[in-house]
Design a binder for these strands. Structure first.
Lengths: 232, 232
DNA sequence: CCAGTAAATGAATGGCGTTCATTTATGTCT
DNA sequence: AGACATAAATGAACGCCATTCATTTACTGG
């Protein structure tokens, strides 16, 4: 009869932290991984190394685990991105719906939504195609927004379309935030596009701290005004 | 004295097409590759195999060339995507500016822009960060749009912001086109999000052929109306 | 208590973008 | 005309990536 597990190295090392002595093969006494831990580690990795640094190997490494172990808890790397997305969706501010007037609530929601995802644009292609059934927190966000629109007197058949349109604008604007400042510098071709160059220069004269915010505000206010007129 | 090149296989094979006999190493008599050819081949590959099929190896293969040869003409795969993007920008319809009224011209431009890029969403992350100086045809599109706004009496300092906002909406909407039909099916969580589910069902009752077009139209008309009011 | 399943390791796989040494042809300078 | 830099191709190699599989070990339900 084999002696009881010979204490691999020490007491269970508090947090599911780094790699000390190598773990031997086989199921460990206490599970090391779960989806929450994977999500948290992924977020930390993203914030320290960016999305380029988010590899399955790096993720496993930060969890003190072999890469293949991850696949007991997620089906793929896209699955990890989905977990991250859903976590972020919960950070979007929907608290104004039902409290502040409709237009103020939409404003708060949209700005918050854009700010959260502007740091996570690589998720946008994933979200855009993501069936909501797989993302409970995202779904909860939609529920809050939908209720806000309904309570504000929006015709029910237009609510989803309006949200989809707002969301499209938010995602596009999130990319815009990440663009380099000189993105509109035409360089040597400037003379060939005089109207464009003039408009770019004219905007620069205004000296806005964040031009991208000006464009976002301009578009968002137009959408809010336009949609506001649909309410009954 | 070596005999003049011993006719590698046959007469120059018309189009720069497929791979017959292997070419021997060294610079060929006539250049096989150029950026135009690479762009065309990339577009064909994308349309036949999708963006997953667009690999440097596959691209080289379709041009009858070794992968490393591509790097004499482009710096990276992103560079190829940039070439493709610029080609597509030239397909966006800006002809209505200066011909039709401003609102109709914006409408035509935006629908066309969305339609072109909805088939090429993997380019969007590239475009969003792309300095226009590297994309002459894209720049030409901006010039036409800017001129249209100016001639319509737009205050010059708001032109770029308005275009940026419209573009953000267009890009987001382009993703939306690619989403699966049942993206809003909450599945087993439906009971937990009654307002959302009701709104989704209510929209479905309308039986629109393309719900995504309804959302796009709704948002676009709001932007056009809102921005139209800025004209002097 | 025993079978089935869950959770880990570690080795292996195939594909990817990219680099580099090498070969051959072109174009320019003297 | 000859020399030489440069351009454009090949082919071998690199490192990284996500993912799979056989294997080991531990937990759990009948």
């Amino acid at each position: 009869m084999p002696a009881p597990t010979p204490a691999p190295s020490a007491l269970p090392t508090g947090p599911p932290a780094a790699a000390g002595a190598r773990r031997r093969a086989g199921r460990p006494t206490a599970a090391i991984l779960d989806q929450d831990g994977i999500t948290t580690a992924a977020l930390e990795l993203i914030s320290s190394k960016g999305y380029d640094g988010l590899t399955m190997a790096a993720l496993a490494r930060s969890l003190g685990v072999a890469p293949s172990a991850l696949y007991n808890h997620v089906a793929s790397k896209d699955d990890v991105l989905l977990l991250v997305e859903d976590h972020l969706a919960a950070m979007v501010d929907v608290t104004a719906f039902g409290v502040e007037p409709w237009d103020a609530a939409v404003r708060r929601w949209a700005w918050s939504y854009r700010d959260v995802f502007s740091e996570h644009t690589p998720l946008i292609p994933v979200i855009a195609v993501l069936p909501v059934a797989n993302a409970p927190k995202t779904l909860a966000m939609y529920e809050a927004v939908t209720a806000g629109f309904r309570d504000a007197g929006f015709p029910e058949e237009k609510i989803i379309s309006a949200i989809v349109a707002l969301e499209a604008f938010v995602f596009g604007a999130a990319y815009d935030v990440t663009a380099p400042e000189d993105i509109f510098d035409a360089g040597s071709l400037a003379e060939q596009v005089p109207n464009f160059t003039a408009a770019v220069d004219r905007l620069a004269l205004e000296n806005h701290p964040r031009p991208t915010d000006v464009a976002f505000s301009l578009g968002l206010e137009a959408l809010i005004t336009g949609f506001g007129a649909l309410r009954g």
